[in-house]
């Protein structure tokens, strides 16, 4: 009895000491470690605190997963997310929302942030996403191509042209020379998909990754014009990041092999040219053919 109590007390004291040490070391090394970029995936004991990530709605599934893996790799850190339409997120960052990392669904929305000098480093494209036609389970209207969507009696939901998935869909429609009047222009890709899921529309043009995430409820139909409207997803750590070291580490983690594996498993494609700089100009990029088709949900 006595011994066990003494022992547990000693254990507690040891734990306390360890905590104190850890706290001291982290605060001590904070300034010095801040400059040297920690290598990805490896042990970087200097990191702690909360990382706030603003990410496009289409990244919700994968980034939530990546956040957990990041926390596991860096004990003492905590990743919190704000998933929303890229444009909404860009607006809130420019208007001073406290964020460490921004992952956008289009270079144009990232440009809003970088133009305002709110990025800490050059944004990098970390994945690409391809459009796909989403149809209700079983494809009741037997839609097989983008042209089929323009047939009379087919109700289509597109994203609003103001948001990336809507802009991409317009590019694809233009590329296929298809003229189409949707019944609605939804404010983000998820609500466009929901309308399909509920059977309120016959089809919607959304990302492959969304169709894949919703595989049990909707079916996907690939179409060739999608190659002309591939969306680049840029990521950057932010200039006013409350936790700059962790922000940089999270960006690196997303670009690491481990991060890319999670993303491609969800249906994202690896960027055309590796690493380096972004081409922030247009959504459609030249090297679309490099992307292997990963989705296979077409009936």
């Amino acid at each position: 009895m006595t011994t066990s109590r003494t022992r547990s007390a000693a254990a507690a004291a040891a734990a306390l000491a360890a905590l104190t040490l850890a706290a001291c070391s982290s605060s001590g090394s904070g300034s010095s470690a801040g400059g040297s970029a920690p290598s990805t995936g490896g042990a970087s004991p200097a990191l702690s605190g909360t990382v706030t990530v603003f990410a496009a709605a289409s990244l919700q599934g994968t980034f939530t997963d990546l956040g957990k893996k990041f926390e596991a790799a860096h004990p003492g850190t905590k990743v919190t997310f704000n998933f929303n339409g890229s444009s909404t997120l860009a607006q809130s960052i420019v208007n001073g929302a406290p964020a460490d990392v921004f992952a956008a669904a289009s270079p144009a929305t990232m440009k809003t942030v970088s133009d305002a000098k709110d990025t800490a480093s050059e944004p990098k494209v970390f994945v690409r996403n391809t459009l796909e036609i989403a149809v209700p389970k079983g494809n009741p209207k037997h839609l097989a191509s983008l042209k089929d969507l323009a047939a009379p009696g087919v109700k289509v939901a597109l994203c609003a042209p103001q948001v990336p998935c809507g802009a991409a869909a317009l590019t694809a429609l233009k590329a296929g020379d298809v003229s189409l009047t949707p019944v609605t222009q939804e404010q983000d890709v998820k609500s466009a998909l929901t309308k399909v899921e509920l059977g309120e529309v016959d089809a919607s043009v959304v990302y492959q990754t969304d169709v894949k995430a919703d595989a049990g409820k909707v079916d996907g139909v690939d179409f060739p014009e999608a190659a002309k409207a591939v969306n680049d997803y840029p990521i950057a750590d932010l200039a006013k990041a409350p936790n700059p070291a962790a922000a940089k580490a999270f960006v690196d983690f997303v670009e690491s092999a481990q991060g890319q594996q999670v993303l491609t498993a969800a249906g994202f494609q690896q960027p055309a040219a590796t690493g380096g700089s972004t081409a922030p100009a247009a959504g459609a990029s030249a090297g679309a053919s490099t992307a292997p088709s990963t989705s296979a949900t077409a009936p």
Binding site: T88, Q91, A108, V163, V183, T184, Q185, E186, Q187, S191
Partner: peptide, 25 residues
């Protein structure tokens, strides 16, 4: 926006137009 969707001239009322304009303009 949930029930009637958003399409200019048919279901896009002022509040919807304001919200979507806020996205990029």
């Amino acid at each position: 926006i949930t029930f009637a969707g958003n399409f200019p001239g048919r279901t896009q009322t002022m509040p919807l137009a304001v919200y979507l304009a806020m996205e990029n303009d």
